[in-house]
Simulated scan of single mutants.
Amino acid sequence: MPLREHLTELRKRAFLIAAGLVVGALAGWLLYDPLLELLTRPLHLAASTQHKDIALNFTALGSPLDIRIKVSLFLAVLVTCPWWLYQVWAFITPGLTKHEKRYAYGFLASAVPLFLGGAALAWWVLPQAVDILASFVPDGTSQLVNAQDYLTFVMRLVLAFGVAFVLPVLLVVLNFAGIVRHETLARGWRWAVLLAFVFAAVMTPTPDALTMVLVAAPICVLYFAALGVAFWHDRRVERRT
């Protein structure tokens, strides 16, 4: 496909992703109050278990509106993940044969639960992280948490875990498109494991190593699963040629 057609296709897919996010953001705008309560629950749990006064603080006049827009877009990214993942795959799959596209659709079906599974894992880690960080507040004092900083931290954590779980599926699709071979993935496995543990260490600000291992292990397993699928695909292609 010529470069101009690639750019046209990219613009088309980006527009469709944006349109889907707008629709999802409208739902997020209407559900803002219960969604905000859900996102701030780890903060309230930490305050109640440690018997400390911890509350959100809106520091600027425009902060409530800005946060409402961000929270709405956050929900949009989650609920429309099948839509925007499909658009990403649709941009990649023109390079695949008709037979290989059927596999790509199967990988898309696995990418959605993986993204949501990564987001769920982040939500499991979040209360522990907030509780640990809140424990440093001295007794007899109050903590006003900047609402912008807290909610940005929560949303980035959830989305980062979701994307991390989808990356191995993207590697498989790139392998099917002939861009990445299994030898490349095999040579980079040490870096992949290292990056998985670095990601887990940064994203789980808890002092115990067990939580870091529990977060990094699924990412490593998914990488090696992608390597196995790429190896199978490359061998199959070699036998046909």
Rank of each mutant, 00 (worst) to 15 (best):
L116Q: 03
L65Y: 14
A55T: 06
T93M: 12
S135I: 02
A55P: 00
F115G: 11
Y32G: 00
T59N: 09
R102W: 08
A46N: 11
V125W: 01
T97M: 03
K52V: 11
H44L: 10
P82W: 12
V88Q: 09
L133G: 08
G118H: 06
T93D: 08
F107G: 10
L65Q: 14
L108C: 05
Q143I: 06
L85T: 07
P113Y: 02
L35G: 00
A120S: 03
I67K: 04
L78H: 03
D53A: 15
Y32D: 00
A47T: 10
W83N: 01
W83P: 01
D66G: 06
D53V: 13
L73K: 08
A111C: 13
D33M: 01
P113K: 03
L65S: 14
D131N: 12
I67S: 06
A129N: 04
V154R: 11
G95D: 05
F91L: 13
L114D: 02
Q87K: 10
F58P: 09
A111G: 15
S48E: 15
Y105C: 04
L157W: 13
M155E: 14
T141F: 12
Q50I: 02
L36Y: 07
G140L: 05
A119I: 05
R156E: 11
L144T: 05
L61D: 07
A129C: 04
S72K: 03
V154D: 08
A104T: 03
Y86N: 08
E100N: 03
A134P: 12
Q143F: 13
L126F: 13
W89R: 01
V112W: 14
H51P: 00
L126A: 05
V79C: 09
A60K: 13
D33Q: 15
A129L: 08
F58W: 14
V130E: 11
H44E: 15
R156N: 15
I132A: 11
D33F: 03
P113D: 00
F58R: 12
K70P: 01
L35H: 00
L108K: 06
S142C: 00
F58G: 07
T80K: 02
L157D: 07
W29L: 14
R102G: 02
F74I: 02
N146C: 01
S48M: 07
L65P: 04
L116T: 07
Q148K: 13
I67G: 04
L75R: 02
L61M: 13
V145L: 14
T80F: 03
P42N: 10
L114N: 05
Y150D: 01
L45V: 13
S135K: 12
T97V: 01
V112D: 09
P42Q: 07
A122W: 08
L85K: 06
V71A: 04
I54P: 06
A120C: 00
F136W: 09
P42E: 09
L126H: 05
L157I: 07
Q128P: 00
V125T: 07
T93F: 03
D131E: 10
L56D: 06
